[in-house]
């Protein structure tokens, strides 16, 4: 990225559609990234090993195989951030990709603004030294992960242990989607992955304690059919009207 010091971040883009490759490359280069392309899984696998990119942008439906298999292979040896592009409208596929280790996803059609916002968030996280994030702030809320305290406008907020665990999971992934399964497993344990209604109850509680207007949350956002996302800056570019055209 332009403002970042040091060498330009390297992005590998594996996508079979030439038009999408073209505009994603243009957009990423305008942000100062160095972009390598691959049109198929096999070439992508080679580029992944030789280029060692800082970020992988991966299309799921490739002519010579499913991007999911590459994702599984990659996770065996690397924690590099992965942004999945999906032309599938089925939310189950997005959830499967996230649970398999993708860091975020974009559903086609996506806009340039949306793409760059996700890429920036992923690169920022990847390049940040892990211990730097002991304190996270959003709106009037400040979370001190070391002291395990939460304040709102300077006043301490009392969270129950499960509420704190859920908030911790969201904060750790700030800006990215955390799937329902990840939240349920993290807060209640693997035997509770089917209990989506627990999440509804607790997220409502968290919003009451942390959101300026719990009816219109601007930080703890629902990703329908997928999970939740913590937006550190209110109203992320994630779902602006320009990128998700309304139905007629």
């Amino acid at each position: 990225m332009k403002s970042a010091q040091g060498p330009a971040p390297v992005v590998l883009l594996i996508e079979d559609d030439a038009g999408i490759r073209r505009f994603v490359r243009t957009a990423l280069e305008s942000e100062g990234c160095s972009v390598h392309e691959a049109a198929a899984l096999e070439r992508g696998r080679i580029a992944l090993a030789s280029r060692r990119p800082d970020l992988l942008v991966l299309d799921l439906g490739l002519p010579d195989g499913d991007g999911m298999s590459l994702l599984a292979e990659l996770r065996a040896w690397s924690g590099m951030p992965v942004l999945v592009l999906s032309a599938r409208s089925d939310e189950a596929d997005k959830v499967a990709a996230l649970d398999a280790g993708a860091d975020d996803y974009l559903a086609k059609p996506f806009g340039v603004g949306e793409l760059l916002a996700r890429v920036r968030a992923l690169l920022r996280r990847a390049m940040r030294p892990p211990q730097a994030a002991a304190r996270v702030a959003f709106g009037a809320v400040e979370v001190d992960l070391e002291q395990r305290t939460v304040t709102r406008g300077g006043e301490p907020v009392h969270l129950t242990p499960i509420e704190y665990r859920l908030l911790g999971l969201l904060v750790a992934a700030a800006g990215r989607v955390v799937t329902q399964r990840q939240l349920l497993t993290g807060a209640w344990g693997p035997n509770h992955v089917e209990h989506a209604h627990y999440l509804r109850v607790y997220m409502a509680g968290l919003r009451r304690k942390l959101e300026p207007d719990p009816r219109l949350p601007i930080h703890i956002l629902t990703e329908p059919g997928v999970g939740y996302r913590l937006a550190l800056e209110p109203l992320t570019a994630a779902r602006t009207p320009a990128s998700s055209p309304p139905a007629g």
């Binding site: 038009g19 999408i20 505009f23 032309a87 059609p109 806009g111 340039v112």
Partner: peptide
Amino acid sequence: RTPLTALAGLAESLPL
């Protein structure tokens, strides 16, 4: 979806 994503994205990235 794929070509329409490309079309919209190419038009949007034109200024870049």
